[in-house]
Design a protein around this nucleic acid. Sequence first.
RNA 1: GGGUGAUUAGCUUAGUGGUAGACCACAUCCUUGAUACGGGUGGGGCCACAAGUUCAAACCUUGUAUUGCCCA
Length: 922
Amino acid sequence: MTEPADSPKQDYRDSVFLPKTDFPMKAGLPQKEPGILARWQAADFYTELRNRRRGREKFILHDGPPYANGDMHIGHALNHILKDMVVRTQTLLGKDAPYVPGWDCHGLPIEWKVEEQYRKKKLNKDEVPAVEFRAECRAYAQNWVDTQREQLKRLGINADWDNPYLTMDFQAEATIVAELLKFAESGQLYRGAKPVMWSPVEKTALAEAEVEYEDIVSTQIDVAFEIVEAPNEPSLVGAFAVIWTTTPWTIPVNQALAYGPEVDYVVSEVAGRRYIYALDLEAAFLSRLGVESVDRGYGPLKTGGLVDAFVRHPMHHLGGFFAKPRSMLAGDFVTTESGTGLVHMSPDHGEDDFDLCKANGIDPVFAVEGDGKYRADWLWLGGEGSVINPKFNAPDGPICTALRESGGLLAASADYKHSYPHSWRSKAKVIYRCTPQWFVPMDKATVGATLREKAVAAISDTRFIPEKGRNRLSSMVEGRPDWVLSRQRAWGVPITLFVKKGTNQYLDDPAVNARIIAGVRAKGVDGWSEERAQEYLGPDYALADYERVTDILDVWFDSGCTHAFVLESGRWPDLQWPADLYLEGSDQHRGWFQSSLLQSCGTRGRAPYNAVLTHGFTMDQKGMKMSKSLGNTINPLDLMRDSGADILRLWALTVDFTEDHRIGKEILQGVSDQYRKLRNTFRYLLGALDGFSDPEKVEVADMPELERYMLHLLADMDVKLRQAVDDFDFNNYVRLLTDFANEDLSAFFFDIRKDSLYCDAATDPKRMAYRTVLDILFHALVRYAAPVLVFTSEEVWQTRFGADVDSVHFSDWPEVDAGWIDTKLAENWGRIRGARMLANELIEPMRRNKEIGSSLEVEYSYSGDAGEIDLAEIFIVSTVHLGREEGAVKTANHKCGRCWRHLPEVVDDGALCGRCADVVGG
RNA sequence: GGGUGAUUAGCUUAGUGGUAGACCACAUCCUUGAUACGGGUGGGGCCACAAGUUCAAACCUUGUAUUGCCCA
């Protein structure tokens, strides 16, 4: 067989200027990214950027320290990507935006892990010298800092990784001590008391995390307190308020009773005595008493009848502490879920009790000592215990026996099953016990205003993104109690106070304080030792007269001081105080945002930040919390290994991070598709710009309308992108970019100009104008995309300019000429694009019937006027007839063998049109 | 249990009282020449649910559900 002689189809492909680039469509990010990272690192990228931005306006993002314990998770990844985006966009705008990362290193979780290691080695923490133990904690924290640092680096975060801040640096520890002493010197510190979880076995306070709950059986007792005074209902005098408790040992420390203001009470008579209890709990109460019915002749208790009433302790005959009448107080926490609806209050041994009593001027008495025994001078059961001993609390034990003899015990049985806290370590029962603690007062006026007032004022001076963060922080500051600074632990910054023995008064001498700070600066937290105490006290004070406080600081005080030892210290000369921005998860309203605010307001009278940005939490695909037990966690390390950091970054910057948001397989698939679209846009630009150089450039004034319209769109987007950066609206930022790339470029501009790019002569002014605009677009888009796709943008940059040139990340914001904005032109082109859409709709049925294939086979009639614009080119059809009723027909013209347009001058299918003949011939 | 957010198409999301929009995905057609790509067209929403205010509600009010964060 031979080819038909009449169709010598010539292949013009070689004469067409097709895009040419080595930039691959398949990204291969997991393989490429580490190489790009290594190059940045080798060139000391962070330092170089600092040098280049020196002297520019600053933007200070102050990094909140993650806890140095465990691998990076999705929350860390999101948080750091957002921070990096802030820093990079501000840098792109030309500012000097340093980023010093930090870690929170002290605290119980680390202490606990180290203890766990000790236990595995059969070592007892208490037998190890504290200095040695702290050294282990330090090493443990350092290990996780190093691990997390490498994981965060992999995200492409541009930070001062070689010089991070750690709360356990000696310099940091010394600053924290100095900041604490500022509170002391300004009178914003006092020693008070507070019930804490206490283990009588280990004789130590426990944190919530050190407590586990187990079911036990306790003795439950009902105790009658005789009413001795009832100004609002005098008939109640002589009746008995009945309380119920599962901790009989607290009765010897009772100081008040509480009733529920909303609870309905009744007065009934049993065996000649009148009892008061909640109506809803009558059945259970009577069953404990072992009676079947009562005389309810007294009826319901009048509302307010218990207000201002007093009772007396069943052991009042002992005198002293027990003789004092007990108030009846209204407590919102009193419910009718169990008991009698009346609750006995011991401020020493319960949080509700403590708070209610404190509000009514009743102080704790510290009757139970650290070993769980009543102190020796206690009138009842002095020196006896321990209070957690079941026999001590039993129905036949000493407490119940005495109560029974006094007539106060109505019922007692060792049969109440409930969940009760135990020490995680010893498995022994724990109790609430009031212990001395150090507080920062919220409502004490110092230098004009209280700390609460200063903090509230500072909040109103701060910008919040989103705005609702303001309310959240305000309501917490307005409602919070005094700040408890002390912890009875080992791994932390010491509360470096000397207290005058026999008082609660700490020594306030700046000379002593200066020596203490110097000591901690030299030796870290170990510098606060008994051996060095006299050295700090100096010649003016004798150690024998003082108690050296051995508590450590709440770790929130540590992190609340980061602004002091990072921004102010001078160790990072690029930084300055206050920070422009703090950026953390919404849980930090209670945490770091607040501790930093209070710390700074207490010492500097204002917030350490000008703005606070909060992000939500990452949920699984269905919006459920991620947890290991549900198996719905997404591990960012796996994701980077499988898909690349740029995909993770694009995800973080596409979702609405100000709210809770989701991640999952389907969502990530969508992100990957979006990435591919952007990547392909760059690939096209690189291919279409092959061989482009300055001499080809055309002045904007000489460009066709379409090119000027595109520059208008670019300039318009530029304004919106700047606004998005100012608003930290990254979701919008990325959407502006992708919509522009997809709709304005790929589906419109590139599609229309394909003909010119492929088929016009290299010297054709239209083609030159097109390539000039592509070059402008390239420079703009690669910079816009750089803060988002940090690796891909670098790859694009190097593909165009070679591996030896500067990084794209040293660039400034694109120079987009505001003069390109041409509203009138844009309005006209808006109409043309509308007409183009209509044309597509009219052409579509022909394509669908297989009447035509390509739209270039169409002759289109347009009812309007097009001015100078060649609509055939814009609509991508063969010809447009003006001034006729809108419609499409198949052309009779032949197809040019090179540009595929159907034109009258083409003599036969496959022959050349005039333009192509010139190009090929010339 | 309390406080405080969220809920718009399969996904990511615009939308501050006047006919609910977009990108992606999906279906389908075109494409020798952006080809592990590109273009066209189309379907798809009781705006979580229920009451109320209003001439008119995704939007304002109240409640419910689901779900998050903080606290108890």
